[in-house]
Write a protein that binds this DNA or RNA. Structure first.
Lengths: 348, 348
DNA sequence: CTGTTAGCGCCTTCAG
DNA sequence: CTGAAGGCGCTAACAG
């Protein structure tokens, strides 16, 4: 059945290497391999007749391009590494979701990388993923190891740094002003008349964006002439459980507290749920504010006051910026402030 | 500064193609390229002296391997595509997290793919990701398009199908018996003495695993001689909001209902939160059961009775099965039942 | 233990 | 619009 009349000694080295190649298609269609390549990648450069013959051959043989070979030859794969600090934090998941939903229809695949908030691992991850000759890349935050930053700059392809906003970025930047967002909630609490206010966070030793929000919180309280150093923190990843613990701890240690500013909605939700359980009234006994805008917040009783950040949209926009640059043009802007919004609900 | 004394006409075709290659390292260390390759991949096959010279050259030049070239030459990249139906559903996220945490330390990267529950897209996604010559792959569910299944079988490398358990799989399988899990909760509700029981789900038209749980629910009720067709459903993705809507709808349409069996904890949580808000007592006025074991369930008042599935662990195990096979051996078992557990809490 | 040789499958360049 | 030649960077196979 095979057309293998010419000696049949072609060495097939790798196991399972029975895949149909461009060459097979070319033979079937009676054209040169390069013509098949063109018919697939730039059909407008191939006559209609050949195009059809080639398309037929492709589906007859069930040809699927080897993207690795293509990537090697053209020095770039349609892979976009997305490096985030954690996959257990909903925020990053939602951003990734936005990125993926935007990139996949454009023919790009997301290569996932997680650093666990460790810049050293981030640097080595950068080395690894650059090894896949990606066309572009998305990273979290603006602070990186010197070595990673150098590598990325030398690489010179489209790169979007997300979640945070800064004066200088490697290539493109989209995010929010964490300091301002933290200050925003703090000011709101002050305006509501609360005086004894605490900040409650977790993993702040490595999550510097949370630290920035705390910094904003402190500045705002200081500006209002209020004690600004009441801080409760923990090391574990954010969860309802940690929020609950922090809440009980604060209640116990500083019963005079009037308002709690949580570093994120997971913690704040854990606190409200515990308040429900033990009969602490929010906000009458104590007010609670969060950060993020998780949908859960709207379903709690009382509904959670929070500073929302459009996370899914941030992912979408980051991907669009990348695509714009990948497809030749330059993005509308290489630095976009995705913004945040104070949602005053019932918990403050 | 450069050592480019030999004519300097080497053609560098691609933009930005100033990367250090294996050849550069070889020249620097005064050995053949293959020796560098070996020093990096199988150091035990290179003498200590050369190894050191090579390591020095590598760091002096800042060499980073081109994984694409390596992948082409050795017919396999250290990329593992993970294909899931959705990135907006926490379940899959947690599984992915487990997979990623297990694969990354072993030197593999996760390539993300999402099908939106569309088997047609799944099939084309399979074609695409196979183009990256992955070493192995993880897919969701046991039902695929004929074309995808054929392709995957012909591919012949390690593949784990997750989330569901079945008689026949392509290569390896880990998951739970959805039908039994559904029956388990239904039986529990009957044992608690509830007679008028409804099932409430969403997206069941495309999510056949949810349909299987409903099927189990029906069988269990039928076996107990109870009306088993009370079903409320919706098309949107699961969310607290949809759970809330379904809950109100059921309350309104069938006030005689005594227990609600939700297709997942997101929906069930939405219902409990709404019950809290409108003053419906759970379980006194109506009982509520879920499926998954989301951590939120333990923090609600009342705490949610649910059938838990170890999602993170399933990801870890799936990755381990894959690694076992990739690293030559064969996994302990190629079909593992990760199990589920009925957690009776306060909501039933 | 080290090197030589010959590709992996595709795409870039340059000719026709 | 189509084709021939050569190479992307690395590694498998086979010597020494």
């Amino acid at each position: 059945m095979s057309t293998n009349k010419t000696g049949g000694r072609e060495r097939r080295r790798h196991q399972g290497d029975n895949r149909v190649t461009l060459k097979d298609v070319a033979r079937e269609a009676g054209v040169a391999p390069i013509t098949v390549s063109r018919a697939l990648n730039t059909p407008e450069n191939v006559s209609a007749g050949l195009r059809e013959r080639i398309d037929n051959a492709v589906s007859a043989l069930g040809y699927v391009p080897n993207l690795i070979a293509g990537g090697l030859a053209s020095a770039g794969t349609k892979v976009i590494p997305v490096v985030v600090p954690s996959l257990s934090i909903l925020t990053y998941i939602e951003v990734i979701h936005g990125i993926q939903q935007t990139l996949e229809p454009a023919g790009y695949q997301v290569l996932l990388g997680s650093t666990d908030f460790d810049l050293e691992r981030e640097a080595s991850l950068v080395d690894t993923v650059l090894g896949y000759s990606p066309s572009g890349m998305i990273m979290t935050g603006l602070r990186h190891r010197e070595s990673a930053e150098r590598r990325l700059k030398a690489w010179g392809r489209p790169l979007v740094e997300i979640m945070e906003l800064g004066e200088t970025c490697i290539d493109m930047n989209i995010g929010v002003e964490n300091t301002e967002a933290g200050a925003c909630m703090a000011r709101h609490l002050v305006e509501q008349g609360y005086q004894r206010i605490a900040f409650l966070g977790t993993g702040m030793a490595h999550d510097y964006r949370a630290r920035l929000r705390y910094e904003g919180h402190r500045q705002a309280l200081k500006a209002a002439g209020i004690e600004s150093d009441v801080l409760f923190q923990d090391d574990q990843p954010s969860s309802y459980e940690v929020g609950r613990k922090l809440f009980l701890e604060a209640l116990d240690a500083r019963p005079e507290l009037q308002a709690l500013h949580f570093a994120n909605d997971n913690l704040a939700a854990g606190a409200i749920l515990e308040a429900n359980r033990i009969g602490v009234r929010v906000p009458q006994d104590i007010a609670i504010g969060g950060y993020l805008g998780l949908s859960l917040g709207e379903h709690l009783t009382p509904r959670l006051t929070t500073v929302t950040v459009p996370r899914y949209e941030m992912g979408v926009e980051a991907a669009k910026m990348l695509l714009a640059k990948l497809e030749g043009g330059s993005p509308a802007s290489s630095r976009v402030d995705i913004g945040y919004e104070l949602k005053v609900r019932e918990s403050t």
